[in-house]
Design a protein around this nucleic acid. Structure first.
Length: 474
RNA sequence: GUCCCGUUCGUCUAGUGGUCAGGACUCAGGACUUUCAUUCCUGCAACAGGGGUUCGACUCCCCUACGGGAUACCA
């Protein structure tokens, strides 16, 4: 049996990192087993329609390096992959359920239901449908259905219990008395998630449903539906949730949750994938950095955790840093140049970009990191830097260096060290007193990238200009 | 409220009856370095609580507490 899995988001406008992790696990599982990975759009809620949401979703998923074998942009005979385009299928199946008595028409108004719920809550009962339309005469109901708005509910057994299996959580038993007569078809003719999901998974041949833990409580309904429809149910695996720092379900209110937000900050897709893969799953050894291929090779559902995981970006930062350091220079430069945001580098820009690499956590830090190379230097007025500039030896160092720069041109970073050695020899000043004044004069800062690269990038002319400026200030 | 799921360092996690409870991030200290960063070394830091079961429980069972999820004509 070939494995078929799916990622079935509702188009809310962006790809949620939690959703992406679900997608990733499905993808890894499919690829690991040589199976198929499907993308299906669950757009059954008309009131939630968001313009361009699907395009955005597809874009983010692709940017993250996932590809699917079938989906809204890759239709095949099992499609369409938009639920809103599968309405006839749901109609057909719901009629089967009605005819076998597994579902029934319900004419209760939403006002009555809201009232009912309120009353139940007030009385300390658990809210749920009271079954008023449960025993309407079928023929009568069909007649009313012609002109009255109504929904269609599933008929859950009155008593008994169901024991089912989840790959991650094991055996779970739920009593039917706790399961509500779920609405399957809404009054607008669209199916609810619960119904569309089961029908589509069946017809698309899904063998493993890997989804978030928020669906675990409704699994009995889904299982019942498979049974009522006479279908074999797939294997279920409910993933632990991604959490806010306060342990609640990861939400927009407490920080960025869209994949595109993280991409926009300069996290590398593979770093984000790697990080997310390890949030709720581990390979069983102490390794933490994995390529996509390695993740595919090592992924398995039985090493997925049960408990939710806090989405904490500290480790993501570290991981992104690792990925940046591991980049080939050419790749790094190509990427880094996308993040200049207006900064114009001279023809020695590559050297500057490379010099800044070791301290880079995210690519959006590039402009800041580049400041020592490109910003106009302001002379320090106070603090340690000012003190150093006021030192007696400083003037001598700067003056001597300036003179050397007037006669010897600097054509590579390595050339700066001998130059400074010359200054040291001539002035007898060394160590901190030699290097710091030069750094401050050239960059205005106490700290920064390697001075030899800064010197090379600036070139003789600019260095002389800055030294003169510093000499005047000093 | 009710049902379901969960609970190992601050965070991500390893661990399936006998371990000095391991690793990673963060943090602190140190080494290297002309600064910063990188890198390396060292250190701080955890089995929610209570009962069982057992010669022996982080590991198995029960209870409690706490956290989360679900309780919609949203997914």
């Amino acid at each position: 049996m070939t494995v078929i899995v799916r990622f079935a988001p509702s188009p809310t406008g962006y790809l949620h990192v939690g959703g992406h992790r679900t997608a990733l696990y499905n993808y890894l599982f499919a690829r690991k087993h040589g199976g198929r990975f499907i993308l299906r759009i669950e757009d059954t809620d008309q009131s939630r329609y968001v313009e361009g949401a699907v395009e955005n979703l597809v874009k983010s998923l692709r940017a993250m390096g996932l590809d699917w074998d079938a989906g809204p942009d890759k239709e095949d005979e099992k499609g369409p992959y938009y639920q809103s385009q599968r309405l006839e299928i749901y109609q057909r199946e719901i009629h089967r359920l009605i005819s076998t008595g597994k579902a029934y028409r319900c004419f209760c108004s939403s006002e009555r239901l809201a009232e009912l719920r309120e009353r139940q809550l007030a009385a300390g009962e658990s809210p749920g449908y009271d079954g008023r339309c449960r025993h309407l005469d079928p023929q009568e109901a069909e007649k009313r259905a012609l002109k009255e708005p109504h929904v269609i509910r599933m008929r859950v057994p009155d008593d008994g219990a169901m024991t089912f299996h989840d790959v991650i959580r094991g055996e779970i038993t739920v009593e039917f008395s706790r399961v509500d007569d779920q609405v399957l078809m809404k009054s607008d003719g669209f199916p609810t998630y619960h119904f569309a999901n089961v029908v589509d998974d069946h017809y698309m041949g899904v063998t493993h449903v890997i989804r978030g833990e928020e669906w675990l409580p409704s699994l009995p309904k889904h299982l019942l539906l498979y049974d009522d429809l006479g279908w074999e149910a797939p294997v279920f695996a409910h993933l632990p949730l991604l959490l806010n720092p306060d342990k609640s379900k990861l939400s927009k209110r407490q920080g960025d949750v869209a994949v595109e937000d993280y991409l926009a900050k300069g996290y590398l897709p593979q770093a984000l994938n790697n990080f997310l893969a390890l949030l709720g799953w581990n390979p069983g050894d102490n390794r933490e950095i994995f390529s996509m291929d390695e993740l595919i090779e090592r992924f398995s559902l039985d090493r997925v955790n049960k408990a939710g995981a806090v989405f904490n970006t500290e480790k993501l930062d570290w991981m992104n840093h690792q990925y940046i350091q591991a980049m080939e220079d050419a790749d790094y430069l190509k990427e880094a140049r996308k993040w200049l945001s207006g900064i114009v580098l001279n023809d020695r820009g590559d050297a500057a970009l490379l010099a800044v690499k070791s301290g880079l956590t995210r690519f959006d830090e590039i402009p800041d990191k580049l400041a020592p190379f490109v910003s106009r230097v302001s002379f320090p007025q106070e603090g340690e830097a000012a003190e150093l500039m006021a030192a007696e030896s400083t003037r001598t160092v700067l003056q001597t260096l300036k003179e050397k720069l007037q006669t010897q041109s600097l054509n590579n970073p390595a050339g700066f060290f001998p130059l400074m050695k010359g200054v040291q020899k001539e002035t007898g000043i060394k160590g901190k007193n030699l290097w710091m004044p030069v750094r401050i004069a050239l960059t205005g800062e106490l700290h920064g990238p390697e001075l030899n690269v800064i010197a090379y990038y600036l070139g003789n002319e600019e260095m002389i200009r800055r030294l003169e400026k510093a000499l005047k200030g000093a």
